[in-house]
């Protein structure tokens, strides 16, 4: 994997609204046999919970609550992450009944609390070496 050429965050993770009044939503999979939800969308039609080929594309609610979080003081090793530090990520429990791992956007890390209401946002993560903006989904306190 050459990091320079990789699109860091897959843009297929969220919808691209055509009209201004439409809101962006995360895209996932739902099993029509067992009801289990997956994010990101599974690229093969196979439910890893009930082992059936019964997955359908689904859009998730934009709203959730912070289940866990940590503010990380330094970038992890490996050179894969090109965003700023400190940064924050954690688990978000989405209304639909799925836990999603996400970066958390805030200007005030001290204000973050478990159970806090958050909403989906798309934000710039970094500029790549060609000057293109690389964006990702995050959740932000409401």
């Amino acid at each position: 994997m050459t990091i320079e050429k990789m699109t860091p965050i897959d843009e297929g993770f969220w919808t691209k609204p055509v009209n201004a009044d439409e809101e962006i939503q995360l895209i996932g999979s739902k099993c029509s046999e067992c009801g289990e939800l997956f994010f990101p969308e599974k690229n093969k039609n196979w439910c890893i919970h009930c082992y059936k080929s019964a997955l359908k594309k689904v859009l998730f609610s934009r709203k959730g609550k912070i289940a866990t979080f940590s503010v990380v003081m330094q970038k992890p090793a490996g050179g894969f992450y090109h965003g700023g530090a400190p940064y924050c990520y954690g688990c978000i429990d989405i209304e639909d009944g799925i836990r999603i791992k996400s970066l958390i956007s805030t200007d005030d890390y001290d204000s973050l609390k478990l159970g806090m209401d958050v909403e989906l946002v798309i934000e710039k993560l970094w500029d790549d070496k060609d000057g293109n903006e690389v964006s990702t989904f995050k959740f932000k306190p409401v």
Partner: peptide
């Protein structure tokens, strides 16, 4: 330095989710 774990998907690595101390921290706060 910190452990450069590759047990993560490319989008997770790009998001900085391989900070193992932070992964433990998430479990710790819960």
């Amino acid at each position: 330095g910190p452990i450069p774990s590759t047990a993560f998907l490319p989008w997770e690595l790009a998001s900085g989710f391989n900070a193992q101390m932070a992964n433990y921290a998430n479990e710790t706060i819960e």
